[in-house]
Design a protein around this nucleic acid. Structure first.
Lengths: 313, 313
DNA sequence: ACTCCTTACGGAGCACGTAACTATA
DNA sequence: TATAGTTACGTGCTCCGTAAGGAGT
């Protein structure tokens, strides 16, 4: 039994039991994949797939077990290859980051700039997705690690590290009625149509329950995955925006008024997470270290990688 | 990179960097192993071994990491093959048990008899060793699981399950002076030369500290790994024996007097343990289930596999 | 009719074995 | 000098590709 055969098995499953597509992903012809599968089943003396005539339909009970082990084997191969690449040139390679729009747009630029100074020969890939997708991507090694606020902290096969804590701010067009509320409270905010992040993104899960606990039903007229979209509609006068403080820029957004809501809304933690068994190359570890040293002051990222405020949590 | 290459790497390390010996274990010629290693190092682009001229001396830093992953890969291959064998004939195969002399001689026979009734086509292998060796054997998959009283419960990469609790009895020739002690206490026992298990076997670690805590220094004139050896010397009049209650047979040992010491000496737990990631075939799981259902009454194994006393722990 | 999988067959490459060479103890 | 490892080369097997055949939608 060789890894080649296990790779065929995994590829076929990931291609929804379409052998032809699996072959394309493996950059070999379809018949070769068929042969590997036949060889594997022959060697194990058991059917891995259930079939309908010649078509593969699903996995047998044994097949499920084998698949599980096969995936782990291939992950180990990746680790071994990574050890090799690290040794050949430990400052050169690819870094694949999975994250949400908001992180990619407002948080990561400073970190990435810092990272590029130290590792100019590492090419960066940013893969965007929902928190659920980011978990999948980290588990399947489609990305080296994922960064976002939800989902990451809970999965048992991911190692998750907290990066920073943040809260929301309210944004509204200058002279909007909400700005006259003194003091600014939840009931007051709820009087106006709200625009905020789509449920399940950027910590909106906690947000919802906070309003619920106060017995308030916010009127969310629009939700978006994307802070820029929210700002746009706030500018259009569609409503009042609730966005991450890190996403508010006093210079770019000077046409919008901002109010902090730290005292009203729950704090969120943004995490970085990677597969528990993954070998991290030196520069990957360095990136995570940079994230950990990242300092947030008044919701603005001050200086990743310097001494800064260390007592952040 | 294929498993064949990783197998060569592991074999060489396990043969103390002797390529010739590794080749013999793999049932191929030595040059073939050399080639596989060269191929692996070539593909990784890194030296795995440090060399003295042509001879392999040790692993490099990368080599250590690779070896670690390689071992895990090969363990996964074993699991996959086991899934296959389970499917081909789930009641047929080999069961390799690692254990100490005392377990093999006094505890396992009843369990094994029961097991053979259910799985007549499983061939059994008993491998004996010290608790330390048994841990190694379980970790390296030289045995399917290990059974003994010490060491097993602590190792993090082993799954350990308690089987039964036991204590020691005192044995002495009929009419020996120690038998006249009423009540029988530790001080009294310490007046006579003692014969018991060698340190690190059959729970003698706890035994030592119990005497120490009472401020007593037992005079252990002979220690053995083997209960039968202890009995022999007790019969010779060399001293008083402290053995596991399960190892005393009223019929065979009717020339020796026995006294329970439950109230004086610490209880020991005998464990079964296997590698945390190991796939257990059906009959292996069944054997462990049998061990778990094993019932001990007055230190005698009553009936493995029946209802019996279930409130044992 | 089209897609998809299997099987047969041929060529290229890889693995293993033999053997000659080289280096260490 | 004996032992151990590398390198060279030949043979057989594996793997991949092409292509034909059968099975499902």
């Amino acid at each position: 039994m060789e890894l080649r055969q296990l790779a065929s098995l995994v590829a076929v499953v990931e291609a929804n039991f379409n052998v032809t597509e699996a072959a394309e992903r493996l950059h070999i012809v379809q018949s070769a994949v068929s042969q590997q599968l036949a060889r594997l089943e022959g060697e194990l003396g058991t059917e891995i797939f259930t079939r309908k005539g010649k078509r593969l339909v699903s996995l047998t009970a044994s097949g499920e077990k084998v698949l599980n082990y096969a995936r782990q084997s291939l992950a180990l191969r990746e680790n071994i290859l990574a050890v090799g690449r690290d040794h050949v040139d430990e400052d050169k390679g690819i870094l694949r980051i999975g994250t949400t729009h908001t992180q990619a747009r407002y948080v990561l630029p400073r970190v990435i700039q810092e990272f590029r100074k130290v590792f100019p020969d590492v090419s960066l890939q940013i893969h965007q997705g929902t928190p659920q997708q980011l978990v999948e991507m980290a588990l399947a090694d489609k990305v080296d690690f994922s960064i976002c606020t939800e989902e990451l902290g809970e999965h048992p096969t991911l190692t998750a590290l907290p990066i920073y804590r943040w809260n929301r701010v309210l944004i509204a067009p200058k002279r909007h009625a909400v700005l006259r509320c003194k003091p600014l409270g939840l009931e007051c905010i709820c009087k106006y149509p709200l625009i905020t992040y789509t449920f399940g993104l950027n910590g909106s899960t906690h947000l919802k329950s906070t309003f619920a606990r106060s017995g308030l039903r916010p009127n969310i007229v629009l939700s978006a995955v994307d802070t820029d979209v929210i700002k746009t509609y706030v500018r259009e006068g569609l409503g009042v925006g609730l966005i991450a403080q890190t996403a508010y820029s006093p210079t770019i957004d000077k046409d919008l008024s901002m109010r902090e809501l730290k005292h009203l809304l729950p704090w969120e933690t943004t995490w970085v997470a990677y597969h528990r068994e993954k070998y991290l190359r030196r520069y990957q570890q360095s990136f995570i270290d940079l994230l950990n040293r990242m300092t947030v002051e008044n919701g603005r990222i001050v200086e990743p990688g310097n001494a800064g405020r260390k007592d952040r949590r």
